[in-house]
Design a protein around this nucleic acid. Structure first.
Lengths: 209, 209
DNA sequence: GTCTATATGCGGATAGAC
DNA sequence: GTCTATCCGCATATAGAC
């Protein structure tokens, strides 16, 4: 890791716990292991460090999302078909992946916390937070569930309401267990309970059984 | 409002947007209309202002919660019976009250935002946030729904899973529309869609109809 | 209980040597 | 690309007059 990358990495850690204002350039420099003045050879200001984080992490989030079952707007039929094979278990895999990614991925988790802290002081930051953790997720899942209804994997229902029913608890548990590092089993048990309830309600196979 | 109260009020507004570190004592004093040095006649430090807010608001939140259908652990049977009378419509009233209270109440909304910002830097703050906006709500609703199942208002189901299904979307929408002041109708429409779905799934009367 | 004045330190940022 | 030295403004907080 270059010094320039290490600065971003350490700054993200500090911003995600102490906040932007609560973190000094010296804090970052200390964490990196250089003097604060040296840091200005890599970034021209503290704000440039923050902006770089937002830009890079936004891109990284989109890239990673595709990898775990959030493939953007295309291939919805294929994605739905893929999940169709797995029924209740597939639903659990999907939830667990999304949940553990946002909770534990070394970048996603810190980035989410940072945006959570900073969303109120700047409209642009808020838009980024809202897009990634609210709109994109719900939009994608609404489309996915709509397709899964069409393929008779799920019973007839309102896909938008389903998406909220599915994602909101993931979001809630993410926030609830965010700082409970020793209680991951408990978190996953709660998540599983939720997903099973969701399957009981909407999955056709479960219903027929 | 006394100067001492006004300081708390303005500080809460500032802390809930710019954060504790992002707010200076001068910012608060300016908002109140006094010099920063005068402020120290009322509170001995900036931290004392913050701590006073947390203490007072925690108490106020508990008091207000009781007023809108979150009455603590006693009277659960009575509360459940009360909601039983109203069925689907009562469910909607309950949700709307909780939602609009947390979203719009002039103290609750600012306090929630402040805790959201500050939760990561201090374990104690996090505990307060978690208790009020996660544990208490879920605990109460789990008990309420359990009682409502016993009274045959709801179908047989897992009350804890129901509570997550019910409250998580409220929490999610609260965060989603927190800064969308012009889109309250949209927010309520989404909430209503969720509550109706919840009613369709769990309410006995809806099922039988 | 408000003001002016002030102490003291830390914040972000730059200059220039190596 | 790292360091030392330095600038300057703003931060929290206090002293003391009115």
């Amino acid at each position: 890791m270059t010094t320039k990358e290490k600065i971003i990495d350490e700054a993200l850690t500090l911003f995600s716990t102490k906040g932007y204002q609560g973190t000094s350039v010296k804090n970052i420099a200390d964490a990196v292991g250089i003097k604060d003045s040296s840091l200005y050879k890599h970034y021209k200001s503290k704000k440039e460090i923050f902006d770089t984080i937002v830009l890079e992490m936004s891109m990284r989030m989109e890239g990673m999302s595709r990898g775990l079952g959030l493939p953007g707007e295309e291939n919805m039929e294929k994605a739905a078909f893929g999940y169709g094979q797995l029924t209740a278990e597939g639903l659990w895999e999907l939830s667990k992946n999304i949940y553990l990614y946002y909770l534990r991925d070394e970048f996603a988790a810190r980035f989410r916390r940072m945006l959570t802290i900073e969303q109120f002081r700047d409209r642009e930051i808020y838009e980024v937070y809202r897009k990634i953790f609210m709109e994109d997720s719900i939009t994608y899942q609404t489309q996915l569930f709509g397709e899964m209804i069409r393929q008779s994997i799920f019973i007839e229902a309102n896909p938008a309401a389903m998406a909220v029913n599915f994602y909101a608890p993931v979001y809630f548990l993410l926030n609830k267990y965010d700082q409970e590092w020793g209680r991951e089993d408990e978190a996953l048990a709660e998540l599983k309970q939720h997903v099973e309830e969701f399957g009981r309600i909407y999955l056709k196979r479960d219903r027929d059984a």
